[in-house]
């Protein structure tokens, strides 16, 4: 475990905490895409199929449990919590899951490291994670008022993947035989998708004004 990887995981954890904070304290999920949250729940389910079969470390297992548990709770809150669900912008959040999931599944069936169920699901999870933010970014562009917690949530989520890239570079340099194209390429695509958002986030931070994306 290197510092980039640890910081990345902690940033990911913080993004989830920020979102849960918004849901728990403000009882609001305004500006948050349920589609993206559902895709994340699918991503972690498909990726962590090895949770009961391969023990890596206590840290690894605990983090997997946390990401699975929190992703499903967020979906539950947004769908079923009697107060939280009222703030969900259903009419604005119109992205269809199938348009993202189907191409990712086809790609995972075609390009994978081994053609087994677990391996294809693991690969699928990376392809899907790369694009899972798209419904959220579309919603963000449609929502004129982006509150601070939503902005911070998306910033932390983007930062988490950017830090993973530094981790991969570090591991490639320091560990022999560390080559892993599928997470690398999908991680790179994912980080690039945040590029535009990062630009406006830093602009609003620098000028100390409220974050707004151009229409």
């Amino acid at each position: 475990m290197n510092i980039f990887r640890l910081t990345a995981d902690m940033t990911h954890l913080m993004s989830v905490i920020v979102l849960l904070l918004k849901i728990h304290t403000i009882k609001s999920c305004a500006g948050i895409s349920l589609k993206t949250q559902e895709l994340y729940a699918i991503v972690f389910t498909c990726r962590y199929l090895d949770i009961f079969t391969d023990f890596i470390s206590f840290y690894n297992t605990i983090m997997k449990v946390i990401f699975l548990w929190t992703s499903f709770s967020i979906v539950w809150y947004m769908r079923y919590h009697k107060i939280v669900r009222r703030s969900y912008d259903k009419d604005q959040d119109t992205f269809r899951h199938v348009f993202l999931m189907l191409p990712c599944l086809v790609l995972a069936l075609l390009i994978n490291e081994r053609f087994t169920f677990k391996e294809v699901m693991w690969t699928f999870s990376f392809y899907l994670e790369a694009v899972a933010i798209l419904p959220q970014l579309v919603l963000l562009q449609r929502t004129r008022n982006i509150d601070n917690l939503t902005g911070q949530y998306i910033f932390l989520l983007g930062a988490y993947r950017a830090l993973y890239i530094l981790n991969w570079i570090y591991r490639y340099v320091t560990e022999p035989n560390y080559v892993h194209w599928i997470p690398w390429m999908s991680g790179l695509v994912q980080t690039l998708l945040y590029g535009d958002f990062f630009y406006y986030y830093f602009l609003s931070w620098k000028n100390n004004v409220k974050l707004q994306l151009p229409a």
Binding site: D54, S57, E113, H180
Partner: peptide, 10 residues
């Protein structure tokens, strides 16, 4: 080269 990679990342 095929690596039997330990999936230790999240």
């Amino acid at each position: 080269v095929k690596h039997d990679f330990v999936k230790d990342e999240l």
